[in-house]
Design a protein around this nucleic acid. Structure first.
Lengths: 200, 200
DNA sequence: AGACTAAGCGGACTATACCCCGTTTAGCAA
DNA sequence: TTGCTAAACGGGGTATAGTCCGCTTAGTCT
């Protein structure tokens, strides 16, 4: 039998040493952040602390913000799973309005829990890359089930995503980290109220 | 008569050469941005093109983003004047809901008109410094005249400001500058509809 | 006008993100 | 085991934001 014409494109899984280094770097990064604060993390410093070359660090994460995105990945996936297949009202099953309301609170709390890393993860590009686009997508889908005649659902989805993803960072500039808890609760409540008025 | 106890603190106006240089730098910056794009503007490049030392550039603007903020200042003041003392519904005189609606459209259009510079003006700190805090303040004031029982007006103001200030930058990551006009109109319409449903 | 001083200025210096490319090595096949 | 190749690695190199500090000068006071 002849070999397959298309060689099956085996993605040739991540090399063992690469995996090891990636995990090691993330572990060291977490430690450095805990010790010094996220804004103090430098690429040179991370490489040195991990006993690896700077080139390796960049190969792994591409950019400084990439490190923070990688650090968020775990909790982000957990969050997305809760939204996509967790129990209602955050997960599927509840009516759209309820899911919108629940999503806002959950998202704000989730962002607040990682606020330092979240901030650094969006420093290079102005926007936020992958982060937040999940919110847009999710809103877009939920809005299908809501009656908003004559309005672009895409536009509404972006608007809502911006309202959920950025206020925490805006308030951080103004106040400090200590005052976050109050802000989180207020924001969550405001979001919920507005969504209900808006859609209800 | 004895001299005043407090020497009247004359702010000792900006020196003539400083004024000259500031205007010159802004003029050169505008030219460079037009020629090369805002993201290509470097401090060294600006200093060289203006035939001034780098130190001078930094003394004038403090940070790279400061240059872009200075470039926005004119149009920003004009915008704020239109809101604070222009004709209704953007200016005072109209009912709060109308002013909210008008503000959103005006703000989005204003941001779109300067989108490249706006983007660069918020690159250093994560938030946006002074930009946008005007929106928060304005919303805060307008909301006094709206019935939203049991919700923190501060939180709502921040939420709305985020919804107005950031979507354009989010969509910029996703699409390109060409598609802005459509986004602007959609966003403005979405904003208006949502505000009316929210408050009405 | 002449002197005094605060403000402005310039450019060398530092810190740090990100690039390049020659060298090493993991993973596979004969 | 041995050889082969693509991937990973290292660390010196570059670009650019931002700092420092000694020199110069505008504006003011007498």
């Amino acid at each position: 039998m002849s070999p397959p014409v298309i060689p099956l494109e085996r993605p040739r899984r991540e090399r063992a040493d690469a995996v090891r280094n990636r995990l090691h770097l993330l572990r060291v990064a977490r430690r450095l952040i805990a010790e010094e604060g996220a804004d103090r993390l430098t690429m040179d410093g991370l490489a040195a602390a991990a006993d690896l070359g700077k080139g390796t660090v960049f190969r792994r994460f591409g950019t400084r913000a990439g490190i923070f995105r990688a650090l968020l990945e775990d909790s982000e996936q957990e969050f997305q799973r809760a939204v996509l297949e967790g129990p209602p009202p955050l997960g599927p099953g509840a009516p759209p309005v309820e899911r919108l309301a629940a999503f806002g609170r959950a998202r704000v709390e989730h962002l607040a829990a990682n606020i330092e890393v979240v901030g650094q993860s969006r420093v290079d590009g102005h926007g936020e890359g992958p982060l937040g686009s999940f919110s847009v997508l999710h809103f877009r889908v939920l809005l299908e089930g809501v009656d908003l005649p004559g309005i672009s659902l895409d536009a509404v989805a972006v608007l809502l995503a911006a309202a959920v993803e950025t206020p925490l960072l805006l308030t951080l500039d103004r106040h400090d980290v200590e005052s976050l808890p109050g802000s989180v609760e207020d924001l969550a409540a405001a979001w919920e109220a507005l969504v209900r008025r808006m859609v209800g």
